[in-house]
């Protein structure tokens, strides 16, 4: 990654990770059934491409965890990385030009996130997060679902909604960015008009 990014992208990544963390923690305080802890990741994917998005997502969870503040997030670093990667790929496919395709990209990303996070959730964390969404896991287990299915069931209820909201918020933000700044990002030609 030495010179594959311009300085603007490099300066963006730490700010994006800080946005993930700051907003993610505010949402926890508000007790909403979404996480919104990948706004920065999706933003980088959209502005700077899949690899930059991947790095932003992965490092968010690693830094959040290794700093000692939220160690339970670190094992999911690959999920966050895939979210950034997918946002970047959807952007390159031109899906960000209209909000409908971009929102669809958010839903698909949410489904993928639910699928790939389930194994780690089940194996490392016994299928629970210690948060309110555990009620869904409880209900599914009570109705006879296996640990992996129950965990995935929890994810498939919360993740697509969360990623949909995240993608839409990011789209609105990017559209509000000054043109002078937008034209200088690697993905300039794929951004919403």
């Amino acid at each position: 990654m030495q010179r594959s990014f311009n300085t603007l992208t490099l300066a963006l990544i730490p700010v994006a990770i800080a946005i993930n963390i700051a907003i993610g923690q505010i949402i926890v305080l508000l007790k909403l059934p979404v996480y919104l802890d990948s706004i920065g990741t999706v933003l980088v994917g959209l502005l700077a491409g899949p690899i930059a998005g991947l790095i932003t997502g992965g490092l968010t969870n690693i830094i959040w965890g290794v700093s000692g503040l939220n160690p339970q997030y670190t094992p999911f670093f690959y999920v966050a990385a895939v979210i950034g990667l997918m946002a970047g790929i959807f952007a390159r496919l031109g899906w960000a030009r209209t909000i409908w395709m971009w929102a669809l990209g958010g839903l698909i990303t949410g489904v993928v996130a639910a699928i790939i996070s389930a194994p780690t959730s089940a194996i490392v964390f016994g299928g629970v997060t210690g948060a309110g969404t555990d009620l869904i896991v409880a209900a599914l287990r009570a109705s006879g679902a296996g640990i992996m299915q129950a965990t995935f069931g929890q994810g498939i209820v919360s993740d697509p909604l969360d990623k949909l909201a995240t993608f839409v918020i990011v789209w609105l933000i990017v559209r509000a960015l000054p043109l002078r700044l937008r034209v200088r990002f690697p993905n300039a030609e794929y951004l919403p008009k």
Partner: peptide, 20 residues
């Protein structure tokens, strides 16, 4: 939440120009 999230993110993205 939009009025909370959008200004925070927008302001910080504009700042990255100077950071770079």
């Amino acid at each position: 939440l939009l009025p909370l999230v959008v200004p925070l993110v927008l302001g910080s993205i504009i700042d990255i120009e100077e950071r770079a």
